[in-house]
């Protein structure tokens, strides 16, 4: 069984790797944004995740910072 610490370590390593490429930050022109403009590259949560985000905000103590609900509607069952 993978421990919580190990899972966090794996994800932290992935993030660190991606953050490392921040050093290569360059200005990207509009005509170079074809990959960035792909529907699946959107920086917001996707439409199809709508109900998932709702049930997670009801079933978990933490919520917010993901475009999901922070209030309104009971969802108390």
């Amino acid at each position: 069984m993978i421990t919580i610490k190990k899972r966090l370590l794996v994800f932290t390593s992935l993030f660190t790797g991606m953050l490392a490429s921040l050093s290569s930050c360059v200005t990207v022109k509009e005509y170079q944004k074809n990959k960035l403009n792909d529907a699946e590259m959107s920086l917001s949560s996707r439409k199809i995740e709508k109900t998932e985000l709702n049930f997670q905000s009801y079933r978990e103590g933490a919520s917010g910072a993901n475009g999901g609900k922070t209030g309104g509607g009971c969802g108390c069952n």
Partner: peptide
Amino acid sequence: TFSGTLAWSQIINKNLQLLLEGELV
């Protein structure tokens, strides 16, 4: 419920972009 959200999105290169988001509820 009152909430305030601040976010910064940045294109890093032609393949990579990021979003930093903080909220106070």
